[in-house]
Each structure stands twice: as structure tokens, then as C-alpha cells.
């Protein structure tokens, strides 16, 4: 009997992370009076894009915009105390922009954590990072997690182009954060 070939991953025999999947947080019917948290991951144009979406939501949907904080380390998922602050200060959260290897995956991880904490969340990711974002969702037991994809690149857009992008994304953000499809 020859020696067995050893597995170098540490995952031999581990079931794939299918799990129970992700149950989304309950959605409000509409966004009137809802406190919207913007979680800027500090990637270039992220703060502006989120602020523009917040402005449009305030003007057109009557939300109260709340910026709880920025996520200082875009490369890692938000720390627990930051998630808690959003949970307390906001009814729904919009976060992004996932436009790098680690921050796109981390943005999706944040969305999933917030959903599990009961906060409906819209994650905005560059469409160049769909594979890594989906891989993170699967890793977090939420295969098929629905986030918003926006055309790459975001970082080079002018202020006016970011405003246009915000307008473009608005219907999808509203649909994702409310129960009304």
C-alpha cells in the first residue's frame, strides 16, 4: 500500500460552505423617513458616489441620510464595532465601492454581515471584480448574494460622471433596499 498524498489546504474532508444560505434582512416597503447609512470604504470616488446616491434618495424618496463613519481599512471587512454603529444609527446601509482585489471581497462580506445583523444593505462593486466578490459570498455561506455591479473603472470618473453614475444606480439601490420590486 503506497503512502497517501497529503492535502496542502487544511480543508480535506471539509464540506463546501453551502450552509443554510443567506436570509436577507426584512425590507421596508419604501424609503420614506428611513435612515440611510453610507459606509465609504475610502476608495477614490466612493465617498462622492455614496453622497450623490444619498442626495438623490433624500430628494426623491424622502430618506434621512446618516453617515455613521468611513471604513478606514478598505482591505478588510468592517470591524464589529463599526457594524454595531451602523446597526444602531441606520435602517438601511449602502456601501462601496468594491474596486480592488481585497476591498471588493470585503465589501460583499460587510453586506452579508449587515444583512445577518438585520440591516438591509446595498453593496456596490465594480464589475471587474465579480468573480472575487462572488467567491467571498460563497465563502460566507451566501452563494448568489445579490450586490450592485457598476461598470469599471470608477476611480477615474470626473465629479459630473460620478453624479451620472449615481443616477444610473439609483433604481437598483432602491429595489435592493425595499420589499417593493
Amino acid at each position: 500500500m503506497p503512502n497517501a498524498i497529503l492535502d496542502p489546504t487544511g480543508r480535506a474532508g471539509t464540506a463546501s460552505a453551502a450552509g443554510p444560505g443567506l436570509e436577507l434582512a426584512p425590507r421596508p416597503a419604501d424609503l420614506a423617513g428611513v435612515r440611510v447609512g453610507l459606509m465609504d470604504n475610502t476608495k477614490h470616488n466612493a465617498a462622492l458616489l455614496l453622497a450623490e446616491i444619498g442626495n438623490l434618495l433624500a430628494a426623491e424618496h424622502g430618506v434621512a441620510v446618516t453617515v455613521a463613519a468611513t471604513k478606514a481599512n478598505f482591505a478588510a471587512p468592517a470591524p464589529a464595532d463599526l457594524v454595531d454603529r451602523y446597526r444602531e444609527a441606520c435602517d438601511v446601509v449602502i456601501t462601496g465601492v468594491g474596486d480592488c482585489g481585497s476591498c471588493s471581497a470585503s465589501a460583499v462580506a460587510d453586506g452579508i454581515v449587515l444583512e445577518r445583523a438585520g440591516v438591509p444593505t446595498a453593496v456596490i462593486c465594480s464589475d471587474a471584480f465579480v468573480v472575487t466578490a462572488d467567491a467571498m459570498a460563497e465563502l460566507r455561506g451566501a452563494p448568489g448574494y445579490h450586490y450592485i455591479r457598476t461598470a469599471h473603472p470608477v476611480a477615474v470618473l470626473t465629479t459630473e460622471q460620478v453624479r451620472q453614475r449615481a443616477k444610473q444606480l439609483l433604481p437598483e439601490v432602491v429595489a435592493l433596499l425595499t420589499s417593493r420590486q
Binding site: C100, T132, A135
Partner: peptide, 18 residues
């Protein structure tokens, strides 16, 4: 490189985005 690939599960085109 193999530790990063295998023990961390970081494969190119997936969670590794070079």
C-alpha cells in the same frame, strides 16, 4: 507561494486579483 495558494485558498482569477 504555495502556502498562500493552498492554506489561504487564494487562487488567481478568484480571491487573488492581480
Amino acid at each position: 507561494g504555495l502556502i498562500v495558494r493552498n492554506a489561504y485558498g487564494l487562487h488567481p482569477h478568484e480571491l487573488e486579483q492581480a
